[in-house]
Every structure is written in C-alpha cells, then in structure tokens.
Computed example of a mutant assay.
Amino acid sequence: MDVQTTVIDIIDNLFMEDISDMMDEDLFDAGVLDSMGTVELVIELEEKFNIKIPVSDMGRDDWNTGNKIVQGVKDLQNA
C-alpha cells in the first residue's frame, strides 16, 4: 500500500472520516482534526511508517491537509 492510501486509511480508522476527496482541505477547519486527534494521528503514523515526527514539525499549518501529511511522511522516510 502506498503512503497516501495508508494515510487515508489511518485517518478513516481514527476519525471515521474519508478524506480521499478532500486532500487539500484544512482538516482542522473541516472538523476532522483537533489537538488530541493530532496526537493520535502522530502516534499511528510513527508506528505504521517507523518514523519519528519531531514536535517542531507538527505546526498546524505544516500538517493540516491530507497532502501535507503524506508529503511529511515521505520526507521523514527519506531523511
């Protein structure tokens, strides 16, 4: 499974929200993510992709869309 599909699945499983048709939409404004949800998402992403997401990388504007999350995971995998 590719990174995008996996991220979409993780978000769907955690928040019961299919974001596949809203990859550029702000997930906070859409009510999908909040601060607690972000923590849950980080934990899942770190476990699933075997990466470490630095707290400094978790600014709301940095990881607020599906596409930004996917790109962030890819960047950390290639770091």
Rank of each mutant, 00 (worst) to 15 (best):
M1F: 06
M1Y: 09
D2T: 10
V3H: 02
V3G: 00
Q4K: 06
Q4C: 02
T5A: 13
T6P: 05
T6E: 07
V7C: 10
V7Y: 07
I8G: 07
D9G: 03
I10C: 01
I11Q: 03
I11A: 04
D12V: 03
N13G: 07
L14Q: 02
F15W: 00
F15R: 04
F15M: 05
F15P: 03
M16N: 15
M16Y: 10
M16L: 15
M16E: 15
E17K: 13
E17S: 14
D18G: 11
D18Y: 11
D18I: 14
D18F: 08
I19F: 09
I19D: 09
I19G: 10
S20P: 09
D21I: 11
M22W: 00
M23E: 01
D24H: 05
D24A: 03
E25T: 12
D26Q: 11
L27G: 14
F28E: 10
F28K: 12
D29L: 08
D29Q: 12
D29G: 01
A30N: 00
G31T: 12
V32C: 05
V32Y: 01
V32A: 05
V32S: 01
V32L: 04
V32T: 09
L33S: 13
L33E: 13
M36C: 04
M36V: 14
M36D: 04
G37T: 09
G37W: 02
G37R: 06
T38I: 13
T38F: 11
E40K: 05
E40C: 05
E40F: 02
L41H: 09
L41Y: 06
L41Q: 08
L41T: 14
L41D: 14
L41S: 13
V42F: 01
V42Y: 01
V42Q: 04
L45G: 14
E47H: 08
K48L: 02
K48N: 07
F49Y: 07
N50T: 15
N50H: 12
I51W: 06
I53G: 12
V55W: 04
S56P: 00
S56M: 08
M58V: 15
M58T: 14
M58W: 06
M58A: 13
G59A: 08
G59H: 11
G59W: 06
G59E: 11
R60C: 03
R60G: 10
D61G: 11
D61H: 10
W63C: 09
N64R: 09
T65A: 12
N67T: 14
N67A: 12
K68P: 13
I69F: 03
V70N: 11
Q71L: 04
Q71C: 00
V73A: 03
V73W: 05
K74D: 00
K74I: 09
D75C: 08
L76S: 03
Q77K: 15
N78H: 02
A79K: 15
A79P: 10
A79M: 07
A79Q: 12
